[in-house]
Design a protein around this nucleic acid. Structure first.
Length: 453
RNA sequence: GGCCACGUGGCGGAAUGGUUACGCAGAGGAUUGCAAAUCCUUCCAUCCCAGUUCGAUUCUGGGCGUGGCCUCCA
């Protein structure tokens, strides 16, 4: 499509036209999971949002032009703590969580990114970056720690709209005796006791939290690249610190040009947090709800808006997809999606607008013309919906059925006999029994059809 | 306290300087033994107060309210 892509850029807090540095080599870096616990439904939101952005960019600039990097943070205080609490080794923990994460991605029908680098494979690059920062006097060592000098970087706070003096005034920043200034943040810290460590010029230790993204984005995307994404919570301090490190180490005016952040999910209007006990793991949905339903639910609000997760949302999305499958047909090749349909996605990933367009395409497809159906299914496929065949969709529901197919057919036969005898009371009773087992009966054109709710 | 976002029908949720998408729910109808599903028709909304304007839900200012970040978080 010849239209421009627009994105809300948190660097300026405005929507603006996306202009790539090099349209044949577009770089997008998205902060992936810290693998201390299984991914939850909140983690799924950026996975899907940036998966769709990946698709849009490929659509406009060509498949081979996009380099989408999503890291895995496998060294972190939370991981150490979680491993201790669960009494397993750090590598067993990260291995397990990474496996679950990858399965979740597949379940949610997210395409694999171009690269999925791990922090622990890039410690050498981080050490190199710290050394450069020290050489350039943007960082200092003190008592086996290395800190970044925040006051040496004039643009600090530009992304998150914060003033350093406000941060100190709030005095919420971590105060440490080793820091020269309270706002400084750690680049390297010593390992104590059984903590994992790497050898470095500053002794045995491990990198600070923010450094891995600076090191890995540099490796895969260069010193300056196009898009950096993640959850809104990462805006500060994580992304602010990344910018400071990277620009100072690389001597650049720019790190990423566009900063895109997704809002949070709430659970029945409450913040989703471990302390609230309302974390829903993605893997716990796998047998209950089709991944497509979760996907549709997660894009039912614009990515910048908070999204409330509740039963009605899931029910509505399930019914929608159920309805949409009524015009499903398998495609040999995707049809061209009309520009006016695609337009909302180009305009800052307006997924609700796109869904509205899908409803309009459905109405058209419902007239029975194959070409309209093909366009509709193609448009669904574009955002990763209706990716399964109708059989697969039905099989998923059958798997969790409370009654066997044989028994269902037996009941239907009994019911139809009752109907022939005009014993409608008995017929309705059987129908209610089936409904209790989530089997829905439809009498259509003299035949009785059934489906799992 | 500082910064940011948001306030649209019964609910969810887009967009817009001039008829306010779309979905769910509701109402009526077609169909059905009754339903279900489907189809057709239909009701319902821009937090408050000023300002700019021929005209504001949209822009500006103020107010009220909600949420987020400032500490680990997607």
């Amino acid at each position: 499509m010849n239209k421009d892509i627009f994105l809300t850029n948190n660097l300026i807090n405005k929507k603006e036209k996306f202009v790539p540095i090099n349209k044949k080599k577009i770089g997008m870096y998205v902060c992936g999971p810290t693998v201390y616990d299984d991914p939850h439904i909140g983690n799924a939101r950026p996975l899907i949002i940036f998966d769709i952005l990946f698709k849009i960019l490929k659509c406009k600039y060509g498949k081979a032009s996009i380099n989408y990097v999503r890291n895995i943070t496998d060294v972190d205080d939370k991981i150490i703590k979680s491993a201790q609490e669960n009494n397993i080794s750090i590598s067993d923990l990260t291995k397990k969580v990474i496996k679950n994460f990858n399965e979740d991605c597949e379940f949610l029908n997210c395409e694999a990114p171009s690269e999925q680098p791990r922090a622990t494979d890039h410690i050498d690059l981080m050490i190199k970056m710290i050394s450069e920062l020290i050489t350039k006097d943007f960082a200092y060592e003190n008592n086996d720690h290395v800190y970044f000098k925040v006051n040496k970087f004039n643009d600090y706070g530009k992304l998150s709209n914060k003033k350093v003096k406000d941060l100190i005034a709030g005095s919420r920043v971590d105060v440490s005796e080793n820091k020269k200034n309270p706002e400084d943040f750690v680049l390297w810290k010593p390992s104590i006791k059984d903590e994992p460590y790497w050898e470095s010029p500053w002794g045995k230790g491990r990198p600070g939290w923010h450094l891995e993204c600076s090191a890995m984005s540099k490796k895969f995307l260069g010193n300056e690249f196009d898009i950096h994404g993640g959850g809104i919570d990462l805006l500060f301090p994580h992304h602010e610190n990344e910018i400071a490190q990277s620009r100072c180490a690389n001597d650049t005016k720019v790190f990423a040009n566009y900063w895109v952040h997704n809002a949070f999910i709430t659970m029945s209007n409450e913040k989703m947090a471990k302390s609230q006990g309302n974390i829903l793991k993605i893997k716990d949905f796998r047998d209950k709800i089709n991944g497509q339903v979760l996907r549709l639910a997660l894009i039912s609000a614009h990515y910048k808006q908070p999204l409330d997760w509740n039963d009605k949302l899931l029910k509505d999305c399930k019914n929608t997809i159920e309805k949409w499958y009524s015009v499903y047909l398998s495609l040999k090749a995707p049809s061209k999606i009309p520009d006016e349909i695609l337009l909302p996605l180009y305009d800052d990933l307006n997924t609700p607008g796109y869904i509205a367009n899908l409803h309009k395409l459905f109405d058209k497809a419902n007239n029975g013309i194959d070409n309209d159906k093909k366009i509709f299914v193609s448009a669904c496929n574009f955002i990763g919906i209706l990716n399964e065949t109708k059989t697969e969709w039905l099989d998923f529901k059958r798997k969790k059925s409370l009654i066997s197919e044989k028994d269902i057919l037996k009941k239907i036969e009994l019911r139809n006999k009752a109907r022939e005898n005009k014993n409608y009371k008995e017929a309705d009773k059987i129908r209610d029994e089936l409904l209790e087992k989530e089997v829905l009966i439809e009498d259509k054109d003299g035949k009785t059809l059934w489906k799992i709710k």
